[in-house]
């Protein structure tokens, strides 16, 4: 890789530097240009994918507003440079019908990104869609393909202890959905556990915020 010999003297060093810098600059320029050109498309597609998933997991929702967490821990509407974090679903009349949260975490093979719907008032999940994953096709990919399993997320209640503190969702065979248990699938244990863990830890973050802000947002329907 290194060529110690070769032309010596300041001139040749300068020439080498010059060529390198020139190539690097044009490379950077080309990348920056294409980036500026493709970024809006990428953002739109991203938002679209997540938005479609969000609509699917919020029953009754016809449209949504997108929020992200603000620096003070509250919520603010999504800006141009943000990636969506929370969808608030609105029905035809513009009334709030639910919330969908974007969560992500490590699966078996790679990062899993998903959207899950949650009804903070009723204390239950309203659905789940995996948006991006690279789980083993035919095995772990059931978290995307197995409609029956995906549908159970519309029936899962959040597990609270007596004090109304949220406990973790758990994976079990013969799951009791009332108790926050998710069905196990043989051969896809890891992926199923990952999805459950992602939702569980995301809920721990979001549920307090949602509970606090949900009423306020409902009040702010007209805005």
């Amino acid at each position: 890789m290194t060529e110690q010999r070769g032309g010596s003297g300041l001139a040749s060093v300068l020439r080498i530097q010059g060529v390198l810098v020139a190539i690097a600059l044009s490379a950077g320029l080309a990348i920056a240009l294409v980036h500026e050109w493709t970024r809006p498309m990428v953002m739109a597609q991203r938002g679209g994918l997540l938005g479609d998933a969000a609509l699917e997991v919020m029953p009754g929702a016809a449209s949504y507003r997108i929020y992200v967490r603000s620096a003070d821990g509250g919520l603010r509407p999504m800006g141009d440079d943000d990636t969506p974090e929370l969808f608030i679903g609105l029905d035809e009349g513009g009334h709030i019908v639910g919330a969908a949260v974007v969560g992500s975490g490590m699966g078996y093979a790679d990062v899993i990104q998903l959207v899950y719907g949650v009804d903070p008032a009723a204390g239950r999940l309203t659905g789940m869609r995996v948006v991006a994953s690279r789980e083993t096709p035919g095995l772990g990919s059931v978290i995307v393909d197995d409609k029956d399993w995906v549908d159970t997320f519309t029936r899962i209640h959040l597990p609270f202890d007596g004090e109304q503190n949220l406990r973790n969702l758990r994976v079990r065979s013969n799951a009791n959905h009332e108790q926050g248990e998710v069905d196990a699938i043989s051969g896809a244990t890891v992926s199923v556990v990952s999805v459950t863990r992602i939702i569980s830890s995301s809920l721990a973050d979001w549920l307090p915020i949602l509970k606090a802000e949900f009423d306020e947002l409902s009040g702010g329907d007209r805005g």
Binding site: I16, V19, A27
Partner: peptide
């Protein structure tokens, strides 16, 4: 392309 840094140039491109 100077020989000494040719690999760096290739990789950049």
């Amino acid at each position: 392309i100077p020989r000494q840094v040719r690999l760096a140039c290739f990789v950049l491109v």
